[in-house]
Design a protein around this nucleic acid. Sequence first.
DNA 1: AAAAATTTTTAGATTTGTCTAAATAATGAA
DNA 2: TTCATTATTTAGACAAATCTAAAAATTTTT
Lengths: 217, 217
Amino acid sequence: MQSYTEENYLKIIYHLSEISHPVLTNAISERIQTKAASVTDMIKKLSEKGLVNYVKYQGVTLTDKGRSTAINIVRKHRLWEVFLVDKLNFKWDEVHEVAEELEHIQSNLLIERLDEFLNFPRVDPHGDPIPDKHGNFAELALVKLSKLKPGDQGTITGVSEHSSAFLKHLEKLSLTLGKQIQIIEVLAFDGSVELLVEQQKTNISREVAKYILITKS
Amino acid sequence: MQSYTEENYLKIIYHLSEISHPVLTNAISERIQTKAASVTDMIKKLSEKGLVNYVKYQGVTLTDKGRSTAINIVRKHRLWEVFLVDKLNFKWDEVHEVAEELEHIQSNLLIERLDEFLNFPRVDPHGDPIPDKHGNFAELALVKLSKLKPGDQGTITGVSEHSSAFLKHLEKLSLTLGKQIQIIEVLAFDGSVELLVEQQKTNISREVAKYILITKS
DNA sequence: AAAAATTTTTAGATTTGTCTAAATAATGAA
DNA sequence: TTCATTATTTAGACAAATCTAAAAATTTTT
């Protein structure tokens, strides 16, 4: 059994592992709003518990045990987000903070029943995949919108930036999950993208396009 | 804002206040599985925060602020219990531990939406009243089954003992919430009660009868 | 490759909530 | 009402998670 704090560290390390390997102390300290010295202490503790592999000055990687714990927290987080949006009518930019708390509730029965109640969703309200109870993710072929070529079509199935500001921006442009889009043009000088959503032409910056994930069709 | 632990103390003090006034240190320490010395420390802290009135050696009472905090936790606890039973098919003896954790989730929006989603329930799965968002309890005229006379009829609307063993026992006897009952006889020598539930005669001890709450009809 | 800058770790302190052991107050019995 | 018992508080210590300041290792620059 891990403490609330240990769980948070494992989750952060899991997410940062997708960017850099191994995960550096400072990367964790920035993400978790904690001084580097404190992170070192916690890393040592997690290492002693066999949840991470730690080499001084080199950073950490998750052990199998650490990874499966982290994935379970991610699973809980995303299932709760689906609950909040689908059942309690939260907006997709309102769910994160509450799910941060709910993800630490300890009860396997609760999560399995919740999963069932929500009809075994594969993705959360941001399009992020929800691992099953064994920690397996369904394969989704997602492509960044910024990688598409004129003429390409697809469905918005995810975002890789979750700030409220960004999500509200997308909402304003009607670029929400499930929407069909088609690329009209990619402007050479700034990489901004002109596209079609619901018969409407819209222009988005390259920055924004990078954070929108598409399933091509 | 109170810590998880402070919230638990307030909740326990609130519940114990219904039995004795003021609430003694040892009563808290027994209920919360903590040594009396630790309870004294926490009580002092709550007192400094203006959540309880504390007189050395005399025990504590809740201030208005402390009481409304406690009632809010009780509200959350009971709403979550309804959710677990009504939506996730938990049995009434399985909900307590999980609700103990869920009650500390911080989000007014969450609780208001949950309340709405559950259709503003007045009582939890054990028949305990759920205060509204202003902390007001709906009045329910509940009577202990042990106070009824032969011929009296009513509906089981609550229990005042929540142990899993007790609830399982009631389940076995079909004495669950909402069931109609009628008293056949109260045996003089041991106070045990013979009654009718779903056309079936059952006999329960005086002890059990004391913990079953009835709305007479 | 040495110096400078940055990152990470160590050492020692702090806060929260807990403990044990000892001291003090309140209660009950003779 | 005095003694014994029980309840409560005080004093000092500890574990978890954090901090600051200083030391050590690594990386970057020149």
